[in-house]
Design a protein around this nucleic acid. Structure first.
Lengths: 205, 205
DNA sequence: TGTACATCAGTGAACGCGCGTTCACTGATGTAC
DNA sequence: TGTACATCAGTGAACGCGCGTTCACTGATGTAC
């Protein structure tokens, strides 16, 4: 608990965290600046000391999310080296782990309608994060004979799509779409089958 | 153009259509009953002659979406018969085609937070729609040796996840995520590789 | 160590707005005779 | 075909509410001397 009293001491970050909880709970359009302020124990007007307004607060939440996300993905990638396959699989797991551990950030990043190009800083960190997935895919696709190798961008788009789909449909309390399988298993097996289709893992594994 | 004058003539459906346009444009939480009424050329209060309120209107939009979706999926399934593979691939294409042709419906169905179990009728039509995908997956998985056959529910969850992911990330104007590939190609190749991984299409195709 | 003062992070009241919902109403439509 | 009347789909005013944002302000903090 930071300093108490008239001056909050750490209001900026407290607002971001309140926003994240609300975005997680109410969705990106349901989030309100006033409620975030209230949660941080402060008047709505105080928000304007730290942010330009509602949008700016969401953008900062997304930025912090991409920062964490990029770190996790990079760490996962490193942990699998020097094996391209191990690196790739680790990044896939990291994707889902991030979405589950930081659902508010995830929503702010991918569902809030905030443009990734809103600021140069946001664009940079977003590209760092998504770049790791593409790098892992590129590494791995070197093991595929060139004539049957799909473009690395397509490869990583497939994996991104499946990961995002699993998150949205099965890893959240989506309405009536309770998965009969744990999302982790679903993604792991899905990626496994996909990689087998590329000839990257032995067919009898 | 329906009858003009004091009585609208077809207000119920006009409201659903206005709602769909707004849901598509502003997202599920951004949709307002008042604006839908205005678009239909009517006072907000008039909505209550036809619906129980905001939620009920969204639910009806979702219901109509599932109806169309189920029809499309069933038609696609039939068009591929008697080949299990052709049926399966056709349903995959139908999924994306639906999402692109009826984006408002798609959002109302899968992103509005409306529970699929809101009414018995909604649950029924939703299950009819999603059941087609599962049926296509079950048919197809009969061609896999039982010992390496994943459960059909998992199979169809993978495909659903990838389809949904492609829709959300690449088939809509998502922020900064312009795909370098047409979504249709992305889904087609993704599913192709996945099926190859299951040994369902020849590895050199 | 003490004082004067600038800086700064908050308050609280006010704004105009659009929301979902209710209510008594009224004008148009359709039916019985 | 004409009239009386019931039904019904709309109006328009009103409600209480929470929103994002602005503004002049004030109390706390930190710095210069």
């Amino acid at each position: 608990m930071p300093k108490r009293g008239y001056h909050h001491g750490n209001l900026r970050q407290a607002l971001v965290e309140a926003a994240l909880e609300l975005i997680e709970k109410r969705g990106p359009t349901g989030f309100t600046l006033s409620e975030a302020a209230k949660r941080a124990g402060v008047t709505p007007a105080a928000v304007y000391r730290h942010f330009d307004g509602r949008e700016d607060l969401i953008a900062e939440a997304a930025r912090q999310g991409f920062e964490i996300f990029a770190d996790l993905m990079e760490h996962a990638y490193q942990s699998g080296q020097p094996s391209a396959l191990a690196s790739f699989e680790a990044t896939g797991r990291a994707y889902l782990a991030f979405a589950r551990k930081y659902p508010g950030h995830y929503v702010a990043m991918f569902e809030s309608g905030i443009s990734i190009n809103r600021t140069a800083e946001l664009a940079m960190v977003a590209n760092r994060a998504l770049g790791v997935l593409e790098k892992a895919a590129t590494d791995l696709s070197r093991h595929i004979p060139p004539d049957k190798r799909p473009p690395a961008a397509m490869f990583s788009a497939h994996i991104w799509a499946m990961s995002h789909g699993v998150v949205e449909l099965f890893a959240r309390g989506a309405p009536g779409t309770k998965s009969p399988f744990p999302p982790e298993d679903l993604l792991e097996t899905g990626i496994g089958i996909y990689l087998r289709g590329l000839g990257l893992v032995p067919p009898d594994e």
